[in-house]
């Protein structure tokens, strides 16, 4: 049997207000151990003020082959960007 425990993905926040970013993964038997391992592996020099761990098999992701069709709907909607609109010359603050 594989006695290395479950695989967990690790997300670290570098400072208050910053987003949590994917740092890597660790093996651990439970969440508490995963957090401790994540601290030892990914934050030995104060790189994190907060850590999330998530079981890897609980993350669902788009796959590269979907890339085109999946993201298509947003590619042809130029009207979602401010550059799409024209404003009379000389008008400011719009």
């Amino acid at each position: 049997m594989n006695d290395e425990g479950r695989l967990w993905e690790v997300f670290t926040q570098s400072k208050q207000g910053a987003p949590h970013e994917h740092a890597g993964n660790v093996h651990a038997a439970d969440a508490e151990m995963a957090l401790q391992n994540a601290r030892d592996v990914y934050s030995r020099r104060g790189e994190a003020v907060s850590i999330w761990v998530v079981p890897s098999d609980q993350i669902f992701a788009t796959s590269p082959s979907d890339e085109g069709p999946f993201f298509d709907p947003s590619n042809n909607k130029a009207y979602r960007h401010p550059q799409f609109y024209s404003v009379p010359k000389g008008v400011r603050g719009i």
């Binding site: 290395e4 695989l7 890597g24 993964n25 093996h27 030892d40």
Partner: peptide, 26 residues
């Protein structure tokens, strides 16, 4: 001690990266 601990960490980073290729750590 800190340096040797770093080496363990570096091993783990690369084992993790290797696992993304579909091979198990074990």
């Amino acid at each position: 001690l800190a340096k040797v601990q770093d080496e363990a960490g570096h091993g783990l980073y690369i084992y993790s990266a290797t696992e993304t290729l579909g091979i198990d750590r074990k």
